[in-house]
Nucleic acid binder design. Sequence first.
DNA 1: ACCTGAACACCGTTCAAGT
DNA 2: ACCTGAACACCGTTCAAGT
Lengths: 202, 202
Amino acid sequence: MNDEPKRYHHGDLRRTMLDTALAMLTEENGWQFTLRELARRAGVSHTASYKHFPDKAALLAELALIGMDRLRTALLAARPSEAVTLRNQFIEMSRAYVRFGTENPNLYRLMFSADARESASGRLKEHGVAALAVLVDLIEEGQRLGWLRKGEVVEQVGAAWAHLHGVTLLTLDGLLGPDVVGSDRASDAALLVLLEGLEQHK
Amino acid sequence: MNDEPKRYHHGDLRRTMLDTALAMLTEENGWQFTLRELARRAGVSHTASYKHFPDKAALLAELALIGMDRLRTALLAARPSEAVTLRNQFIEMSRAYVRFGTENPNLYRLMFSADARESASGRLKEHGVAALAVLVDLIEEGQRLGWLRKGEVVEQVGAAWAHLHGVTLLTLDGLLGPDVVGSDRASDAALLVLLEGLEQHK
DNA sequence: ACCTGAACACCGTTCAAGT
DNA sequence: ACCTGAACACCGTTCAAGT
């Protein structure tokens, strides 16, 4: 639709580069991100990015922040109506977390990469914490209602996050469960172990 | 001690390159592995490695295999005498796993990197499974003695591995627990959640 | 203010040639 | 059989110059 002639000044090259980069991330899977390749796709000289990002790591960090925000959105969307039990809400949320990783492997890995972390300094952790708000809510409410055992919320959140992170990455690496490709059984089984560990047993 | 004159033929360049690479891995932490840098350290031309490894990924894969073997050794060494309870053996083993990661961050990450996995094909998974033999033993014995709930061993092993993997990586990324640097409390708390999830509750 | 082109210092990899 | 040096096709980054 938008077939304006190419102007020397691009307009919003920053936004375009981020979008193009995200598209590249979701396409290829055996993946090697390159500023020059990005510039080629965006139809711009390979030095243009330096007006908008100090260096490659800064661009990656920005993508990682966007990824954290998308994870937050995905987890929020996965929380079903209040009608269902907290336990089922927790299960749906957990599945959504793992699914986010398996559907966006490159982005998920980028969100935890050293490059992004160092360049984004504290901001990446902030966005990560924001993404986990749903998890925190569920755990606080679960403790209040006597579903989960009492304890430091931050510790339970940490345990749950670590578990979900591990399941996601092992699944991405093809290391979880027997060689039943495409099966969710192994990751579901792992999630149940997590649940048992958090739940109150009378 | 060994001050033989430099021969044109190195002797065991393959071994030397692997050792030098492992040394580089443990030294630097904000780390960027380079074949040319490796060659410089080994005092050899930057093309010499191609006689011993088809490409960079193959060398990395070899290092990853060595890492898996070292993890196996670390876990075996951490299994204390038969006198202590299975539960304590499990805790010690878990701590040893996380400690291996925090003490060898670059090597641990390499063990799960895409480069290494693709180049090593099945062998990396094999060595990984071998490394987890201690975990499998503990879980099988735990089920037999009624300490752990009955269930598919492979599923419980997967859940435990994912949990340990996640705790290790979040710890390496500085994302686990409050900002109590150097504290093991967050990862210990997470391990207890895992234990609760696996244990039999009467 | 935003973008380009040439230039620099690096890579991984190949290949003919040396020992 | 093992190692080297020149060469090639790539990077990320800088900087003077263009619009």
